[in-house]
Design a protein around this nucleic acid. Structure first.
Lengths: 348, 348
DNA sequence: ATGAAAGCGCTAACAA
DNA sequence: TTGTTAGCGCTTTCAT
């Protein structure tokens, strides 16, 4: 078996506390003579003693581990494929955690179908929740947490203000997108939603779109919000494109939707950006995987992750008084999918 | 404080063992009557009892956690930028770990400057080492591990055969690259190395190149191996390109080197692939970030990660008898940087 | 069918 | 300056 403090103590002819004091500096009330200390160090060295941090964590009641919580009903997130959204977030989370001396754990119990078990099982000092789905099942699970928790993307208010949150300024991002198009000369701008049950972020973005267009003097009508239920039902979108788009530019809920729009546009002979400018949201890896590359609003994902851990650590330490929302600004990555509008949209 | 088994036991009027038996199925020798069991479950429910898995792990002496070990002298790996090599590997590691019920932990102590402490501190049932640098410092650290450990990329033999390893078939990969070029008609093929102190993988690839060219009847001379010491010293490479390359194709040690070659080639007016075909190794994100996109040998990174965990878990369970090398086949991703050779290389 | 005891490795509190 | 006691929450072993 492994060498324990007791073994060292015996070999040095002292009691375990002394070893704890000398080797780990822990029993601060205890005084040890230099000679004894040296003997202890010798013994430890000779036996090849290693502190069992796990045992200490158990005793201290704190593990220095942060768990990543993903939400019921989602597949395990992937680093290297798809949007690589999770990869950027994790970079921030790991950076923040390491800065505070915490480790980051991906645990099957937290990622799987019933994370309730994993949440309160004593292994995590704190948790990061980074999904956006406010379904009741997830809410219940989170509200039952006895562990400090920080939300990413989900506003604090959606969970009774119990947890701080970090998210991007969706409204500001949409404003950047709209203004970019507006400045290029676009006046007929639409918004595309690609899911039937809009999550929080989607509604925020849609509302922001309405507001910005309003304040530019071009109120949004029903015809300006294009909805297709999902990747497998593109009927609405196809009909819209086939008829020759009634807008010169489209702002999309997120990059995946934008990529779909660009793909389908090609199919129906609508040229992007000459006939139709397209803007995405999130500025993920998808942007460079479509032709033309997608202009997109960028979220400061790394920063979001890093700041979320900052908040979490403060909560763990009991420093953070009130839960609140931290909102970080978006940017705009201009790529090839946006340009000045055609002189005569319908004809060209 | 949290509700413990004792609280439940007291409330149900039984002893803690009974609770353990009923709620966790652990004290299998103990028999409990259905009525008592029900009472225990009731009490647990009412008190909101949660098993403290951390305490159990402590007692059991196994944590179900796998740590990722990165190596002394390396910066913390990044998921979302650069080659995204780590992202793919982690996808495999996480997949494998989850499949076996283990969690994956990124720990600052394991990633930092002196991982020795973290390795044997009782928190990890097993470790994955995925770096390629065989410097003495790292060897010592690994050999001192008392925890099951699996190497990625580093052959078992380099660490006294103490640990199993998983890596890709570098020789097979190089063969794919050379044969691809050969079949396109290339006969004058060079190899490019971009580091002054070649790691294991580099020498393997270089040797494989020699061997394959030999067996194709075109022995490799000194002039066919192009070496530039690093990203900041491109003198050799530039001179080679400025003189008009003496090969029609170059196989590069890895994608980073290949990308550099392509960049410098443009600078010196050498057209890729018309005048010079270029093949990389690793098929990382770099391939699509250069123009033309890079043809490259692909490593099955996800599979490597997943298989490494399989081996590790077997070692943890004491099932894996002999450490050994698991070598997985490479593929070839043909992109735009390779084509038939120019009819008259030097003139064109 | 149930309970009591003992201990995983460590450390705070109190004693000597 | 050092040692003893006690306990973190859980479970195995042995006794009843």
């Amino acid at each position: 078996m492994a060498v324990t403090m007791r073994d060292v103590a015996k070999k040095a002819g002292v009691s375990p506390v002394v070893v704890s004091r000398v080797l780990h500096g822990r029993a601060t009330t205890v005084r040890v003579s230099p000679a004894t200390a040296e003997r202890v160090r010798q013994a430890a060295e000779e036996l090849g003693y290693r502190c069992n941090v796990f045992a200490r964590s158990f005793r201290d009641g704190q593990t220095s581990m942060i768990g990543i919580l993903h939400g019921i009903g989602f597949a395990r997130p992937i680093f290297s494929q798809g949007s690589r959204y999770f990869a950027a977030l994790m970079d921030g989370l790991v950076e923040g955690a390491f800065r505070h001396g915490y480790s980051v754990t991906l645990c099957p119990k937290l990622m799987g179908g019933s994370p309730e078990e994993g949440i309160n099982d004593g292994r995590f000092d704190g948790l990061i929740w980074y999904s956006t789905d406010p379904v009741e099942e997830n809410r219940r699970m989170l509200l039952a947490s006895r562990v400090p928790l920080v939300l990413i993307h989900t506003p604090s208010a959606l969970l009774e203000g119990r947890f701080p949150s970090v998210r991007c300024d969706n409204a500001g991002g949409i404003r950047l997108a709209v203004d970019h198009l507006w400045n290029l000369g676009h006046r007929r701008i639409g918004f595309v939603v690609g899911e039937s049950r809009p999550f929080t972020e989607t509604s925020e973005r849609m509302t922001a779109f309405r507001n910005r267009m309003d304040s530019l003097g071009v109120p949004v009508t029903e015809d300006d919000v294009l909805l297709y239920p999902g990747a497998h039902d593109l009927e609405n979108l196809d009909r819209y494109l086939a008829a020759g788009p009634r807008h010169t530019a489209l702002v999309c809920q997120h990059d995946g939707v934008a990529a779909t729009v660009i793909d389908r546009a090609r199919l129906f002979g609508v040229r992007v950006p000459e006939q139709l400018s397209v803007v995405g949201f999130d500025s993920t890896a998808f942007c460079n995987e479509v032709e033309p590359p997608l202009t997109s609003v960028s979220q400061p994902l790394v920063d979001i992750g890093s700041k979320a851990v900052d908040l979490l650590v403060r909560r763990i330490r009991g420093e953070s008084p009130e839960p609140y929302d931290l909102v970080l600004p978006c940017g705009l990555d201009v790529r090839g999918s946006t340009s000045t509008p055609p002189l005569n949209p319908k004809v060209d």
